[in-house]
Design a protein around this nucleic acid. Structure first.
Lengths: 253, 253
DNA sequence: GGGTTTTCCTGATGTAGGTCAACGTGTTCT
DNA sequence: AGAACACGTTGACCTACATCAGGAAAACCC
């Protein structure tokens, strides 16, 4: 079944309506997901190995835990949730991936994905077959460097989350997540203060190591205090500085 | 100042008493820290870039957070603690590194180390200058693959820790750490049931997101229940299966 | 070798956030 | 449109772990 991608309506998609016209060279996410140093010729090489598939519907999986690892994916539009199932059957959300971000690199170590990846809304991704990427990395030093950096960045982000989970209060965690989403929106030239939370409260709680009830209470409290204005999933950050004070950490995850 | 390395007395050191006689080819940790696929000739190439420095004394730093990144390090003997300082000045332990394990790759993303690395006991490390490693990775595909895997492994380990911090009880966490250390000892052909905890209770608590008191209480409880036998830092795991039941997770961090 | 400092243990008490429960509000399906 | 269901909010209560506090035992160090 082929689904026409022109139905998609996210901000990112609108700017490049025809799928087959998209290339890494003209993608407006390039500066986020690509090495800035990549030269014209090298972008063409990268372009050749990148596969742009049909959109993924909300709730659909990009891949599942323990599927054979073959590709990493760049999110082009939508939001992807990464999660794993613990031994006792609980879900643990390990990250949310926004446009321009790369997902799937945790699969390299064991040649199978360590997480499942599920679309939280209709999403589009660029598939990058890993063996071709490895080849390209050998030919193009800046590409190799970029990929090492990307992986290292994932590590430092995880370490920030570790720190948060072991040291910060519920309010600090929720504030940190709001600021993180805000910052990632800003990178994509979207509003830094007004956006839609693509994930459920349950997912937020799960990611932050809190229960739904606690997340809900903290958000309500922020709302009452005039720090934010919430209407279900729509959020406006009214006092970004105040939130940063509460979060009390430098974040870029 | 040069410190004679013959003073060192750890198990790993004893097997290769003369520093300058050590090479990646004859190091008994090779199968842990090196790509298994590396061929004779390639090991020589790796050997040429690896620098074996003087031992690091207990409490000494290998590098500090925000030092310029230049090298990754393979622990040859001893134990290294990685930690970062949070905005409000608290320490957060992000990992313990045993012989055969690689530390420092978190520094790649920003070209400066994201953590500080401190020796918990007199240790020896192999320094691997990263730019030379990058070069070598381009020439030797299996080397590049190995390094990607190493980084990816660090990510999955961090994600396991994240899961533990957000889902597991104090007892589960402590049991998991004990089993992890046991497993890492086994990899090095050391006792899986009897060893010395190289880190303080404070460090354990910090790493596991618990207070010293809680760690101490849990360890005492395990002791009373006959799961382990502790005398200060010396531990014997009396009921490995029982501990695994408690830990309730597959661990390899 | 004895004093100082650090580490470890254990008990008493407090609290942030979990649990349980009930109800309101969207969303989906027929 | 109305039933069925997932999601979100709020309140009352509870518990695992933090905090505070004191004392014992190592470890360090003139």
């Amino acid at each position: 079944m082929v689904i026409s991608s022109s139905q998609s309506s996210s901000a990112e998609q609108q700017s490049c309506p025809h799928n087959n016209a998209i290339s890494c060279g003209n993608c407006r996410l390039g500066s986020i997901c690509l090495p800035l140093a990549l030269e014209g010729e090298d972008i063409v090489k990268l372009d050749e190995i990148v596969q742009r598939g049909r959109p993924i519907q909300k709730g659909e999986h990009l891949y599942r835990e323990s599927d054979n690892f073959s590709s990493v994916y760049a999110v082009r539009s939508g939001v992807i949730k990464a999660y794993r199932i613990t031994n006792d059957g609980q879900e643990q959300v390990t990250g949310f991936y926004f446009p321009g971000e790369i997902i799937g690199i945790d699969g390299i170590s064991k040649d199978q994905y360590a997480c499942s990846a599920k679309a939280l809304e209709t999403s589009a991704v660029c598939e990058i077959p890993f063996n071709r990427l490895e080849e390209l990395s050998r030919q193009v030093p800046s590409m190799q460097r970029h990929f090492f950096q990307l992986m290292s960045q994932e590590i430092t982000m995880d370490q920030q989350l570790i720190t948060m989970l072991s040291k910060n209060s519920a309010e600090e965690r929720v504030a940190a997540l709001l600021i993180s989403i805000s910052a990632r929106n800003a990178r994509r030239k979207l509003s830094k203060t007004s956006f839609r939370l693509p994930m459920s409260r349950t997912d937020i709680g799960n990611f932050l190591g809190l229960t739904v009830e606690t997340v809900s209470r903290v958000i309500s409290r922020f709302n009452k205090q005039g720090l934010i204005a919430v209407e279900s999933k729509e959020v406006t950050l009214l006092d970004l500085e105040g939130l940063k004070d509460i979060a009390n950490i430098k974040i870029d995850f």
